[in-house]
Write a protein that binds this DNA or RNA. Structure first.
Lengths: 192, 192
DNA sequence: CGTCAACTTGATGCTATTCAACTTTGGTGG
DNA sequence: CCACCAAAGTTGAATAGCATCAAGTTGACG
């Protein structure tokens, strides 16, 4: 990898594969995410664009030089890396302990939240967004098969947790309901 | 969390839990690992010692001040965090895509490797170490139940991949064999 | 020698996978 | 404009793998 940079528009995925073809997505790169590993040569993972993608890139070497000269940048990068580490660990809980339905709900919840904050919408009222992933990509992210993804997405639709327009456009009428389904259950017992 | 520090002796675990009790270990802290989150107050996870533990601690505030004054430290910390991120992502593949048997083999493989590098032993000949984790802790790390852990550990023993002395002391006669079982299959096809 | 936590083992059921067929969608060229 | 195709997605039936529940067993320690 000759470059580092950050995603401006579109979605890319970071995947890891075994020789027999089993694949796990280990990172979802949405707009504003940083890509690359200053101080490392090894490209440990495959980076693949899953939609049309616009990135803002720097040659790695000059960037690293700048890092050494500008302590602020290293500190900012450390913060971003800690955020990524948090995200990775949150995802470990999803992969290790959640059911298929909860996994789907978790993914939709994350994308919805990201999309909402980016599009300056409040968390009130129905959220709405396009899935930037195929069913197969979702399966690779969630540690499921694409068939199971399909079944559970449609189950959530049948149960009114989400609504679908076509196969990719998702409407979330009640975000708290989705969070419950994800097992995140943020609010606990709100009133009394 | 008032402190940051690093593990000197013993093992601690970083876990995340859902309200209903499901638990996922998101990090295994072995000697030389760093603990804590400079620049963050939130204690996002539970840190629990799983054996007797000796740590080398600093109060967080002075440590952060030192970080600002000494760019080197921030850069070293960034490297360590990137390593942790790699480890977390490797573990995502384990959690998402590996079978119970492969998960067990992966865990043993990691502990064996860590233990070997720490005890300055080569990777040749039989490796030998004590499991620093109960079956339940292993289950929480692997996203399995403790019963499945027990069954698969004993299956690996029956198949001669490992040998057990008591319930905790593990002997690995052939590390490559263990790697194969873990699905890591490093060597591929060595001779022709 | 009794007790408790860690661990093992067995029987059963459920969830997600597997394999296979089928449908929908969007794009291409006749 | 429509027939055709490939890629994406859906659906069904059968099965495997792990979870669950329920007894046991072992080993360390008072």
């Amino acid at each position: 990898m000759e470059f580092v940079g950050s995603v401006v528009r579109g979605v890319a995925s970071l995947t890891q594969a075994m020789e027999d073809g089993r694949t796990q997505m280990v990172g979802l790169l949405l707009p504003s995410d940083f890509v690359g590993r200053p101080g490392r040569d090894s490209a440990a993972y495959d980076v693949v664009a899953t939609t049309d993608l616009v990135m803002c890139c720097f040659r790695k070497k000059p960037f690293e030089d700048m890092m050494v000269r500008t302590p602020h940048i290293a500190q900012r990068l450390l913060e971003m890396t800690l955020d990524e580490l948090d995200a990775a660990r949150e995802w470990m809980l999803v992969l290790g302990r959640k059911t298929a339905r909860e996994k789907i709900a978790s993914l939709l919840s994350i994308i919805a939240r990201r999309d909402a904050t980016l599009n300056l919408a409040g968390v009130e009222g129905p959220l709405e967004f396009d899935l930037p992933l195929t069913r197969e990509a979702m399966a690779d992210y969630l540690g499921l098969t694409l068939e199971t993804v399909s079944r559970q997405v449609n189950a959530l639709k049948r149960d009114g947790v989400i609504d679908l327009v076509g196969k990719r456009h998702v409407i979330v009428p009640d975000f708290d309901r989705l969070s419950e389904e994800a097992g995140d259950d943020s609010d606990g017992g709100m009133l009394s």
